[in-house]
Nucleic acid binder design. Structure first.
Length: 570
RNA sequence: CGGGGUGUAGCGCAGCCUGGUAGCGCACCGGCAUGGGGUGCCGGUGGUCGGAGGUUCGAAUCCUCUCACCCCGACCA
């Protein structure tokens, strides 16, 4: 491709709206432009990357025998009513009406459509198992779209749905999808990790997420050194406290703690460590009641775990200061589990602390020397906290580390949730009707593009893995417009490289070298060839990879083979 | 949804407080020079100042409403 005939929409400065690096770089490199909140146009340069990601996913899905189809973006309400999700889904589902006032929605996912299709088309066990996928635009009306492509409202997703007669068959396809996803992310050239995941409200037994590792990731993933355990922190079981709880030594006392609200303030004020404090979080319970969740002062609440407690309302919501005042007659900073008039749920490690400090349920006062069983009832412990880096795994598989990840893939064993609701059945060997068992497997195609940038960039711009780079090499001629013989040589080389199957971006603009170098680096093209008269005379050309800081002279006669070998290496 | 903020040329911003009819840098077009890391000089194109209403002789500027966009949001007990 010659730049003079291509839309190179690079920006020197990042638009103020862009917060994270991938968003800034995608705008600056001329890959995307925003058209509304969370809705973007993909420019030619960005689309090339998106298409490469798609192609790899498509190849690997096809290799497993999955069949590609394409389902509609606009879906009729009837199917959603049938699955029950028309009422359940909430405002994230963008609902629209046609000219006849019939209800439709923009598809945030396609379980209803595929289940409807399959119940009509599949009649015999002989047609199973089967796996269907599509690469399609989804729309989810997020509360707060942010981070550009990373959390857009309209986004590109590969979703696949498999159908089975038995759990064993589902497990087989699930395992195959797991290894296929592994291969996909390996081919994409990204550092990633597969983790056990919460299956959330979709339900089902097994679920794994695939995360691209990046410091800017919104998810925390927990894993041990040997690699035998990896889970989303939402799910990772906290280890039980070791040993017996210390016997009470201190006597219960009330102390004045004016204006001490946070654990940090409190521990400094009283000169005690945070793990001797107990914090009490008040959340909404069933039927407009309140529930107290009690944690050790240095621990964090795990929202997903807390939502599994029956008394806690889903989604988990903190009580407002007014509700707390009304019910407990104190401000949020002074709550404690002693003599409290709402149900108390205590984390295992909080239950293991003796002589602890907690709020007195009276403003400006805390209790010290508090002990479970003596000063307040001793409840059953539960696991409602996040694991802390360095803790042992609950299954005894060693010390745990925590990394940040961007969720780019998620596989589920759905079971019969949709097939039962929508009566998707087929006949088994005995001629009996069986409800189908389903799996579903998603990959955030457009999110991968952003995640790849989050993981691979420097101060000059993007550093694409070769597999998804918009072009393999940039060819930068120096002063081509002044030298016909150089122009001839450049055009000859350009042709030669292209004939070898190499994707070349030829910078034939009448720009200064610095401009061309900067653009190539910003766009993130993995390899660069700089060609000037000097080199032409010497029969050499200068090569530099995107991650090099020095040029290397390559014999002109060998340059195509050299580039091919560089590309093959990646 | 709650809180905060921003809308002035394609991008980044100034001007607003203290009303007088819009400016800077980059980008873009033309010219000359330059020619290996965003070069220099000269000359240009481009803006209903987000929108509507109001106050005023006069509004980017003051007031009201509205729209859009961005950021933060529970670890605080």
């Amino acid at each position: 491709m010659q730049i003079s005939k291509y839309l190179i929409a690079t920006l020197r400065e990042a638009p103020a709206e862009a917060e994270i690096i991938s968003h800034q770089l995608m705008l600056r490199a001329g890959m995307i432009r925003r058209i509304a909140s969370g809705i973007y146009t993909w420019l030619p340069m960005g689309l090339r990357v998106l298409r490469k990601v798609e192609a790899i996913i498509r190849e690997e899905m096809d290799r497993t025998g999955a069949q590609e189809l394409l389902m509609p973006g606009v879906q009729p309400a009837e199917l959603w009513e049938e699955s029950g999700r028309w009422d359940q889904y909430g405002p994230e589902l963008l609902r629209i009406q046609d000219r006849h006032q019939r209800d439709f929605c923009l598809g945030p996912t396609h379980e209803e459509i595929i289940t409807d299709l399959i119940r009509k088309e599949i009649r015999s066990y002989k047609q199973l198992p089967a796996n269907f996928y599509q690469i399609q635009t989804k729309f989810r009306d997020e509360v707060r779209p942010r981070f550009g492509i990373m959390r857009a409202r309209e986004f590109l997703m590969k979703d696949a749905y498999s159908f089975h007669l038995t759990e064993e068959s589902l497990q087989e396809t699930y395992d195959e999808m797991f290894s296929t996803y592994t291969r996909i992310f390996e081919r994409l050239g990204l550092k990633f990790r597969a983790v056990q995941a919460d299956s959330g409200n979709i339900g089902g037994n097994a679920s794994h997420e695939f995360h691209v590792l990046a410091d800017s990731g919104e998810d925390q993933i927990v894993f041990n050194e040997e690699g035998s355990y990896a889970a989303n922190i939402e799910l990772a079981e906290a280890p039980m406290p070791e040993g017996e709880r210390n016997a009470p030594e201190a006597t219960l006392a009330t102390v004045d703690t004016p204006d001490q609200h946070t654990i940090e303030e409190l521990s400094q004020f009283l000169n005690i460590s945070a793990d001797k404090c107990i914090k009490t979080l008040v959340v909404k319970g069933q039927n407009e009641s309140l529930v107290a969740l009690v944690l050790r002062g240095d621990h964090e609440l795990n929202k997903v775990k807390a939502e599994k407690i029956p008394a806690v309302e889903i989604p988990l919501e903190f009580a407002s200061a007014e509700e707390i005042k009304k019910s407990l007659n104190c401000t949020p900073g002074s709550i404690g589990p002693v003599n409290i008039n709402i149900p108390v749920i205590v984390d295992h490690s909080a239950l293991h602390v003796a002589d602890f400090v907690c709020g007195a349920n009276e403003d400006g006062k805390h209790l010290t020397g508090v002990n479970w069983g003596r000063d307040l009832p001793e409840p059953e412990g539960v696991d409602i906290r996040n694991i802390v880096k360095g803790e042992p795994a609950a299954d005894g598989s060693g010390k745990l580390d925590i990394a940040k990840g961007i969720e780019v893939g998620h596989i589920f064993q759905l079971g019969k949730k949709y097939s039962a609701a929508m009566k998707a059945t087929c006949l088994d060997k005995n001629g009996d009707s069986q409800t189908l068992i389903m799996g579903c497997y998603g990959i955030g195609v457009s999110r991968i593009v952003a995640a790849a940038i989050e993981q691979n960039h420097d101060e000059n711009g993007i550093i694409w893995p070769v597999a998804i780079a918009p072009f393999h090499i940039s060819l930068v001629p120096i002063n081509m417009h002044k030298s016909q013989r150089l122009r001839d040589a450049v055009m000859g080389l350009y042709q030669e490289l292209q004939d070898a199957g190499i994707e070349v971006l030829l910078d034939d603009r009448k720009e200064r070298p610095g401009v061309m170098f900067s653009d190539a680096e910003l766009i993130g093209i993995p390899h660069r060839l700089t060609f000037g008269e000097r080199g032409l005379d010497a029969g050499t050309i200068e090569y530099r990879s995107r991650t090099d800081s020095e040029n290397t002279d390559i014999q002109l006669s060998e340059v195509t083979d050299f580039i091919k070998s560089q590309l093959a290496r990646a």
